[in-house]
Structures are given as C-alpha cells and as structure tokens.
Design a protein around this nucleic acid. Structure first.
Lengths: 104, 104
DNA sequence: ATAATAATATACAATATGATATTATGTATG
DNA sequence: CATACATAATATCATATTGTATATTATTAT
C-alpha cells in the first residue's frame, strides 16, 4: 500500500490518548474501580469503603493513594475520618458509562 | 467504626469489575487506544492503521493481537489485506464516551 | 496535660508478573 | 516473487500487589 505522510493531528491525538490512558490505567484495577464506583454514589470514609468492599486497610489506603496521585479523588477530613469523593468530572462520566454497560 | 458483614452483592460487583477491568486494561495503552479510536470510525486494514498512527508493522501486529485475544476486534480478510473492526458494542460505546471527554 | 484509642497513611520487603520494542523470519495471497 | 500480515525470539526495563509493622492525626477519658 502506498504510504502518505502521517496526518498532522497525530500529535494532538497522541496527547489526548496519553491523558485518557492515564485515567484508564487507574481504573483498570478491580479494587480501584470498585472504590470509584462506590465514590461515584457520593463521598465515603475509608472505613466505610473498607466494609463495603472487604479490602484490608493498608491495601485500601494504598489504592486510594494511587487515585490521589492521579488526582481522580478529593479528600476531606472530618475529625478522625477522611472522606473521599470523585474529583474529576470526566471520571464520573466514565464511571456512569461503565456502570450502565457492565452492571445490569 | 463498627464493622458489619460485607454486602452480599460483593461477588457480583467483583465479577462485573473483573470483566470491566479486562477491557480497561486493553484500552490503557496509547497505541491500542488510538487503534480502537480509528476502528470505531469504521473498519481499516493493517497498512491503513500503520500509516494513520505511524506505528511500525510488527508492533502494530502485536497490539492488534492483544485486542484479538481480548476479543475486542473482528478481522476479515480481503485478498492480501486484513481488515479490523470493533467487535464488542460495549467497547464502541466506551470509545464514544472517551472521545467526547478527551478529544475536544 | 497525658494516656489510650480510633482512623488513616506510609515504609518496606517479599513476591509475582509483564510490558514494549526490535530484528528476523514465517505464511498466505495474488 | 512481491505484498500484506503474523509470529517468534530476544532484550530491556518495570511494576503491581500484598503483608507486616509502624507512624500520624485526632478524639476521648483521666
């Protein structure tokens, strides 16, 4: 097949893809996906998440750390507890979409 | 905080999460995401994809292999060429969502 | 104030598992 | 034989996950 110059938008495409794949990577772990699913329903404390998902505390805290690093979640301290919520509206939209596709 | 028994639906949730994360993992690589984006616009041959995305042929073929393994794409041979298309309608829906969020 | 406890985070080690690109070669079709 | 595509072999470089132990911050009780 005859080759032509790559389309000029290829850099823009790669840049968007890079942003999207960072998020997708964060979502591509069952624990983190379930965490975000729960948070998409409203903010929850760490101990609430621990009970809801049956994940051990250090593991939970680590995965929440990943989500914080990716800036997908916000935190709010109230006394001894820390409440997590979904920060990025794009992620909220994605989660809604995933829910409708995979949670019948 | 007082702990209660994990919710009964936790297994169903984990099962759905596992299905979803398999797909998310496949999408979480820039080359593969861009491939699927192109394919979401309609079927394309390998050499077309090669030109569109400026990926070398063996790499391309490998990543297409991953998408085949995950059963996200279909193939159709026409003469010497092989045409790929998006197989899973859920993936098509996800791609549309991703496009609207990350490709302004 | 101090001590005890609860909620969360971090550090670290151990383990398991892998992703990606490149070069070279194989296969099928025309 | 040339074209289009796939696979294999290799090299490189890395990461994900879990568990145990400990640290931090805030509250409550003394």
């Amino acid at each position: 097949m005859k080759k032509t110059k790559p389309h000029l938008d290829i850099e823009a495409m790669r840049s968007a893809a890079s942003e999207a794949t960072a998020v997708l990577r964060a979502l591509s772990n069952p624990d983190r996906l379930l965490l975000l699913c729960q948070l998409s329903q409203g903010e929850k404390s760490v101990s609430e998440l621990e009970v809801l998902l049956d994940i051990r505390q250090p593991t939970l805290s680590q995965q929440l750390g990943v989500l914080r690093l990716e800036e997908l979640v916000d935190t709010r301290r109230d006394g001894k507890q820390i409440f997590y919520s979904v920060k990025d509206p794009k992620v909220l939209a994605l989660l809604g979409n995933l829910y409708s596709l995979y949670c019948p």
